[in-house]
Design a protein around this nucleic acid. Structure first.
Lengths: 200, 200
DNA sequence: CAAATTGGAATGAACGTTCGATTTGATGGT
DNA sequence: ACCATCAAATCGAACGTTCATTCCAATTTG
């Protein structure tokens, strides 16, 4: 997740993510980060400008990592339908394999603590751009109804985020089958009516 | 929104909501709440036990308000389809008419700062319970596919939350028509195949 | 005038950040 | 093989500020 950083930076970022999810941004003090990461406060400031800088760097790193992970999935599919399924499956995998990073992005994507410039990274380094493209193509090929593709992507992302959230909160179990069912229903929600036959 | 509170409590809660959305929980200090609400710190502590208490009270108040608002909408529909549309329309209205309350609940529903007991209020005073019931009925009447109703409610809530979030962030406009289209597509996503004829 | 309410200065703890001292490890001269 | 040198890395105590909370005097209410 933090390959491009050195040992100290990695320890700090990992620890910070850990504490923020476990406690709160409010309760995430520099002294606690120092204690848990094994890096002294003085040394932390050798590698980061400020606490804000740490949190924003963390945000950027996770968005980039998630972006690569999902884009890699998109490449696996040949047809639009396959890309659709592979892409959203990767999003769900992210939520399950890296729940802390997933929760962090979710909780702070609307926080004023994250700089606007860093938030924009979702479109440049994240997976939003390629996914929007895929939806545009699906509309052109008359697979999807003619709605704003960005709106549709948000819809489907929200769908998955919320079943993952509820799952992480223990409201219900999430089997591989039910995930597939949800992704299929996402397709069904926006598919053009006369495409119904190709649907299993 | 805060009808059951007195003048001082209302001023404090409204101001707190305002600052938290504008700045951050971290940057929401008691002195700032005092200054902006026109209530002295001493007096705030006369009506609230602590800062945590204020924020949790705020959370509870908004959940209860939102719950009443959506349940009221559910009552307007006669058929299941009508209740479905009326209910989700109310959710969207909440996000548009009371964006601060909406954003606050969204941002802090997973925060450790909110007591678990207060979070449970979503089910007792909120709209999750009645909405789950509606979905169960829709499954029994063979209108919906046989999936976990709680999962489906979360799916659809996520859908609407994310188009509202994107709209509030200015990513795209949200017309009344596109909202209707989204709600219809939510129904389509989970409807049982042989129900297609009744569909417009 | 008693009780309830209000105001804001005072308090002590905790916070983010700074800074000078110390350690480390690579380099080159003997 | 040994040591001298030095810049980079590391440390944690210290600093000044800000914070949530308390306390009590002042004011209002009934």
């Amino acid at each position: 997740m933090f390959e491009k950083y050195n040992k100290v930076q990695r320890a700090v970022l990992e620890t910070t993510l850990n504490i923020i999810i476990r406690k709160e941004l409010q309760a995430t003090s520099m002294s606690l980060i120092a204690k848990e990461s094994g890096v002294s406060t003085g040394n932390i400031y050798h590698y980061f400008q400020s606490k804000e800088d740490i949190v924003n760097e963390l945000y950027k790193a996770i968005v980039t990592f998630n972006g690569e992970y999902v884009r890699e999935g998109l490449l696996q599919g040949r047809t639009i339908r396959e890309q659709f399924e592979a892409g959203w499956n990767r999003v769900v995998e992210l939520g399950q394999k890296y729940p802390q990073g997933f929760q962090f992005i979710e909780q702070y994507s609307f926080s004023p603590y994250i700089y606007d410039e860093v938030k924009q990274a979702v479109y440049t380094d994240g997976w939003c751009g390629p996914m929007n493209k895929l939806y545009e193509e699906a509309i052109q090929q008359k697979l999807f109804i003619p709605l704003n593709p960005k709106l549709m992507v948000q819809m489907h992302y929200g769908t998955l985020v919320y079943i993952l959230k509820a799952h992480l909160q223990g409201i219900f179990e999430l089997t591989g089958d039910s995930v597939q069912e949800v992704i299929r229903s996402c397709w069904k929600a926006v598919q053009l009516a006369d495409d119904t036959i190709t649907e299993r």
